[in-house]
Design a binder for these strands. Structure first.
Length: 510
RNA sequence: GGGACUGUAGCUCAGUUGGUUAGAGCAUCGGACUUUUAAUCCGUUGGUCCUGGGUUCGAGUCCCAGCAGUCCCA
């Protein structure tokens, strides 16, 4: 509700313990804040609420700029506009002040003249600092040096900033500070906001592709009795009222498959999963997964879906068809390359993928532990160590060794091969898909099989009896797909670290 | 878990072989300026040199331990 009249100062509010500094420390952090608090007090004395209020009719700066492009540079009768945003730069030339004002859409120059705005507003101009949020009414035109400018007639003070912004030229550089104070990074970091806008557009595109194909978005439980569907150590927690240990989910898979049993034939979930493991440029303990399941499909169905998702997401993010990423040249033109797991292993590692002895010998030469470990575990380690980094991609690696794929259907007549693909780009795993295993007896057997040499945390062999019971009721043959959304965003925005695409990545207390 | 590198003013950074009272730019504060563009000019202020030990006549600098971060490896 707009307000009509008088501003209402709040005299009862006392600022929380303004630092008691004597005037001798004018440049210290505390003194910088005091200088701003003095201006805040002065605003209150002028009857202005330094925390502002609703301000209607604001035009996005990008739209104002578009208008500005159409007007005559010499004209003195440009349209009147209302803009609002944060003061990023402030230059004073005597009785004339130039401001670079920034909103979510862009930047524009404001000119405030002492004569032009009058003595009342000029007192407010004296209280402006870098970082304050203001609203401006004025005439759109061009300054003498040809810069598009809003010549202010009115100034609405909207919010005081009590903290000194980062260096106005370099911005925030320290990667630790950039993440801990993401709000500042978003304001001052080159391309930072754009990257998170892209992330939002990518997620929109993913949902759009799936919705077009008749998928339903659902939400499974994040608190679970046991963490299944992937090989990872879960976070543990406890429900007090039920006095019951719980874990945070590490994957979406097993509940989505229950929904296939339930007749929801095309479902997906886009949600957070949690893995209690190391932190690296490609790993954050919580990250966002897409999993999608389609009844009556298989892993080739999922390859088509994966291509569609990535191509549409790339368009949404404005990613070029061909670009450099982490030292790899990638080309998003579909269809993506496809190669068999064993063929890649033979070509890159130079061993015979059908011969465990040959694999073990090659693995040992790479420093991989082989004693007492299942041949497929050794093979998998060798693939990770030797092949992954060579895959510029995007490339679908297909047909995995069955023993390391306990949730995947075996190839007809080839029980040692699992109908699985992983999509690699720039040496990084981006997606993982199966023809889903729907034989309850085989599934139960595989849950019971702990592979030799594999620590429990790295195993998917965790019995989930309710899931087995669901399979016994009949899960239609299906294809399933998982895509790491954070990595997809990294890839499509060419960000070198997962921490660049997560707004608030994990960090230790300071 | 192992290794390399980093930590100095609110921010971005210098700091020599261990040697006086630790510097610069931006920001702040004061002054000049009605057309600036990281405005400019003059002046001003600002420090737990990450923390704790140690060596030394003397430590931002060397040694040890810890904390935090970045990267690499497992």
């Amino acid at each position: 509700m707009p307000h009509p009249s008088e501003p209402t100062p709040q005299p009862s509010v006392t600022p929380p313990a303004a630092p008691q500094e004597d005037a001798s420390s004018k440049g210290s952090g505390a003194a910088l804040e005091k200088a701003r608090r003095d201006k805040l007090d002065k605003l209150r004395e002028l009857g202005i609420d330094p925390w502002g209020k609703r301000f209607d009719g604001v035009a996005p700066i990008a739209a104002v700029r578009a208008t500005g492009e159409t007007i005559d540079k010499a004209a003195e009768d440009g349209p009147t506009v209302r803009v609002a945003g944060r003061i990023m730069l402030l230059r004073s030339a005597g009785s004339l002040v130039f401001i670079n004002l920034v909103d979510r859409t862009g930047r524009i120059q404001i000119m405030l003249g002492k004569k032009q705005v009058g003595p009342e507003i000029w007192k407010v101009v004296d209280c402006l600092d870098l970082g304050d949020v203001i609203g401006i009414d004025g005439r759109l035109g061009y300054s003498k040096t040809g810069e598009m400018t809003v010549f202010a007639a009115g100034l609405e003070f909207l919010t005081k900033s009590l903290e000194t912004p980062p260096d106005k030229f370099h911005g925030l550089v320290d990667p630790d500070l950039k993440q801990r104070m993401r709000y500042l990074d978003l304001i001052h970091g080159e391309g930072v906001r754009d990257r998170f806008v892209s992330r939002s557009r990518i997620v929109e595109a993913v949902r759009r592709v799936l919705a077009k194909r008749g998928y339903l978005e659902v939400e499974g439980p994040t608190l679970q009795e046991s963490a299944g569907g992937a090989a990872a150590r879960p976070f543990k927690t406890h429900h007090n009222a039920l006095d019951m240990p719980l874990v945070l989910r590490i994957a979406l898979e097993l509940h989505l498959k229950r929904l296939l049993v339930g007749g929801m034939e095309r479902v997906f979930e886009l949600g957070r999963v949690y893995r209690n493991e190391g932190v690296s440029p490609r790993h954050n303990p919580e990250f966002t997964m897409l999993e999608a399941y389609e009844a009556y499909g298989d892993y080739f169905t999922m390859m088509d879906l994966t291509e569609a998702v990535i191509v549409e997401a790339a368009q949404a993010a404005g990613t070029p068809q061909r670009f450099e990423f982490m030292g790899h040249t990638v080309d998003l033109t579909p269809p993506f390359k496809r190669a068999r797991y064993d063929d890649l292993l033979a070509a890159v590692a130079g061993c015979d993928p059908a011969d465990p002895a040959s694999i073990a010998k090659t693995a040992a030469a790479c420093g991989i532990e082989t004693a007492g470990r299942h041949p497929d575990v050794i093979k998998s380690d060798l693939f990770e160590a030797q092949v992954e980094k060579t895959l510029s991609g995007p490339i679908f690696v297909i047909d995995y060794p069955a023993a390391v794929c306990p949730l995947t259907k075996r190839k007809a007549g080839q029980p040692h091969i699992a109908e699985r693909f992983e999509l690699y780009v720039a040496g990084m795993e981006l997606a993982n898909a199966y023809t889903e295993l729907n034989d309850p007896d085989l599934q139960e057997e595989l849950f019971r099989t702990q592979l030799a040499g594999l620590p429990e945390d790295d195993s998917m062999a965790r019995m989930d009896t309710d899931f087995i019971r669901a399979l016994r009721h009949g899960m239609p043959p299906a294809g399933g797909l998982g895509i790491g959304i954070d990595r997809l965003v990294m890839f499509l925005t060419a960000a070198p670290s997962i921490r660049d695409v997560i707004l608030f990545p994990i960090h230790r207390p300071q």
